[in-house]
């Protein structure tokens, strides 16, 4: 692996109107690293994620993907987004398309992959997330956990170099959380670079290479899971951990 970080935040500032939601964020995510971002709601975790693929614009600083600044005027935002997979809290599957069509749409439309090839790849991906038998189902015929797994397959179909997970289990019934986390764990084991915003502390501890605690738009503390959960350095981290545990 090269020494260029997969994702790099360099003094990133983000405002919603008057509200300063990201305050001078510096953060590096190495290739194949799984970084789990935790923190209370409203701390800017999701916004941080959404800035990476420019669903939100930053006002100051720079975000670099494999060394390329995403705000560079030469960067084609559609090409940039192809390299960054994103999975949302509310799944956002396309309801008028089957599971398989959800997965094959972007490769055929954006990459011009022939339909037969995309279908084959799509079936493989659905198989990987454990939904090989649901290829022809529409999203509203699937459970939340199944829908979210299709959403992961859909993002993987573009062969991204980084995956962003934005509270992907928060909208799920408790008994369906495990199947989605299972898919994410497999992805992490396969060496995918992942940026995960979650409230699942068990997952953070077990799968994360590094934990980032955010509060009020700041990165409060960052460190390997064992250290972070056993011996948090800052009072803010101690306070947060005492509340979630």
């Amino acid at each position: 692996m090269s020494n260029v970080p997969a994702v790099e935040f360099d003094g990133v500032d983000k405002y919603f109107g008057e509200t300063h939601v990201l305050k001078d964020i510096d953060l590096e995510i190495e290739e194949q690293e799984v970084v789990v971002i935790i923190g209370p709601s409203g701390s800017g975790k999701s916004t941080l994620l959404r800035c990476v693929n420019r669903l939100e614009e930053i006002q100051d600083g720079e975000i670099r993907i494999q060394g390329t600044a995403i705000t560079d005027p030469d960067v084609d935002v559609n090409r940039l987004r192809q390299r960054i997979g994103m999975v949302f809290q509310s799944f956002n599957l396309f309801p008028h398309k089957t599971a398989l069509e959800n997965v094959t749409l972007a490769p055929t439309k954006v990459r011009g992959v022939p339909k037969s090839e995309a279908t084959e790849q799509g079936r493989d991906l659905l198989e990987e997330v454990g939904l090989g038998d649901q290829a022809e189902s529409y999203p509203n015929q699937l459970s939340g956990g199944q829908q979210q797994r299709v959403a992961i397959a859909r993002a993987l179909a573009m062969d991204p170099s980084v995956m962003l997970f934005d509270e992907v289990t928060s909208a799920l019934d408790p008994e369906l959380v495990g199947e989605v986390l299972g898919v994410m764990r497999t992805l992490a084991d396969e060496g995918m670079t992942m940026l995960v915003v979650t409230h699942e502390m068990g997952f953070a501890r077990e799968v994360g290479d590094r934990i980032v605690l955010m509060a009020d738009g700041n990165v409060i503390e960052t460190g390997p899971p064992e250290e972070f959960f056993q011996n948090p350095e800052t009072d803010r981290a101690k306070q947060f951990l005492s509340r979630v545990n």
Partner: peptide, 9 residues
């Protein structure tokens, strides 16, 4: 958002 984040125009 989902469509655009897949890189679709």
């Amino acid at each position: 958002e989902a469509a655009r984040s897949l890189g679709m125009s």
